[in-house]
Computed example of a mutant assay.
Amino acid sequence: MEEKYSWLGTVSAPQEYPMEIYKGAIVADDFTYGFDAIWGTQNTGWGKEGGTMSVETEKMNLPQHLEFTWYSLVEKKFYTGKWDLNKEKIKTLFDEGFVDQDTRKRTTYNSFVVGLAPKGKVVLWAKGPGNQKEIGAFQAHDTIITKEKAYDNAQYMFKEGFADRMLKDPSYKTFKPEVRKKIEEEGYPSEDVYEVYREKYNWKPDVILPEGGVWLDFGFTNYNGEQENLFAKSLKDDTYKPRAIPKFCGFYWRDKNKNRYAVWVDAFDDKEIFELFQKIGKEEDIDFTIKVNEDNTKVFLSLMTEQGEVFITKAKVRLSRKIE
């Protein structure tokens, strides 16, 4: 008997590139998790899950097939594709699982996130508490769907001016105000950037604390949508690994008097962080270093290699006061 697992599905798209779901499915031998126009517009951010639909099936086989059709509002194009999934890779990921930091118990992934990007790029991730891993990347092709052939619930996509209203009329709230402002000032990101995000470098986090300080954990999300949560044994055993460039990270630490503090790097400057990593290259071992001062009021960020140290100067950092 094939082992069964509990999983659901969701959709992700870049904040700047909203996608309209037409139809799709994550398919296993004994179960199909379907998508259609009821999912509406998706742009939660690259790698970030959207909503999920509950299902009556509690446990099912792992999926072996993905198919998806969607409308890219910015490009004003439909894309479609069907792909076989690497079921062995998925099974290995699910069977290995990870330790949940909150419960301290071994658990595993429970959701598949379908990422839809410009030019028909598709990425599939497995998601679980504090962890997200890329399963595969795929290429869809553009297609033509006419109003006459579209099913009833999708007819709204074919109304004249639909895409322009969704993109340009603030009353539709397609974009967060800060995203709209950035698009107005800088234009849309390069359509190719979601492939650049997938490039990996050999790095590990390294936190430098005042004397007597204890590093407790390190959670981070990378530009490619992958996410890791290091603590206890996984933090102690962590070493250089091929990882995409970090987009967000945060950690807790304790000083010599047992007072607890937190540091969050909420965002990097895209241009700066990519230029620094790209200049170092993929052959070097890189320490992504965060040095904290005595009272948790200032940090210094840098990338360190055998060749030297380069500083990250444009990140948005939050520092906690003493946490009781």
Rank of each mutant, 00 (worst) to 15 (best):
T32R: 12
K168G: 15
T297M: 03
V299D: 00
L116T: 06
E58Q: 09
I26R: 09
F98C: 05
L216F: 05
L85Q: 01
E2N: 13
F175M: 03
L93I: 09
E211C: 04
D285L: 12
F288W: 03
Y261M: 04
K168I: 11
F220A: 14
E324V: 10
F162L: 10
D95G: 15
F112H: 07
T143S: 03
Y5G: 06
K4N: 15
T57A: 12
F220C: 11
I312D: 04
T305D: 03
G213I: 12
K247F: 03
Q132W: 07
K322T: 15
Y223V: 04
M1V: 11
G128I: 00
K204R: 07
K149N: 13
K91R: 14
R321D: 06
K149L: 09
R321E: 15
D84F: 14
Q64G: 04
K23C: 00
T108V: 01
K149F: 09
T44M: 07
A150P: 13
K258G: 07
V122Y: 09
D270R: 06
F78P: 08
E148G: 01
E16K: 12
A13V: 10
P118C: 06
F231N: 12
A267N: 07
V123N: 07
E195Q: 13
V310W: 07
D270H: 15
I290H: 13
K149D: 12
K82W: 00
Q42N: 11
K314F: 02
A28T: 02
K291C: 06
I280Y: 01
W39H: 15
K159A: 14
V265A: 11
K149T: 05
S54L: 05
R106W: 08
I26P: 02
K282Y: 07
E211A: 10
V114A: 03
Y71W: 02
T289A: 01
L116G: 10
D102C: 11
D217N: 14
K48G: 12
F158T: 14
L66N: 10
V74P: 07
V11T: 14
A150I: 09
R260M: 09
E284C: 01
V193C: 04
K176M: 08
D102P: 15
K181N: 11
G212A: 09
D164P: 01
K77E: 00
E191T: 02
Y22K: 11
H65E: 07
M1A: 07
P63M: 05
P246V: 03
K256H: 08
F98M: 04
K127T: 15
V265D: 01
G120A: 15
I144Q: 12
Q64T: 04
L73H: 08
I135K: 05
V263E: 05
G120V: 05
T57I: 02
N296A: 01
G136L: 11
K176S: 12
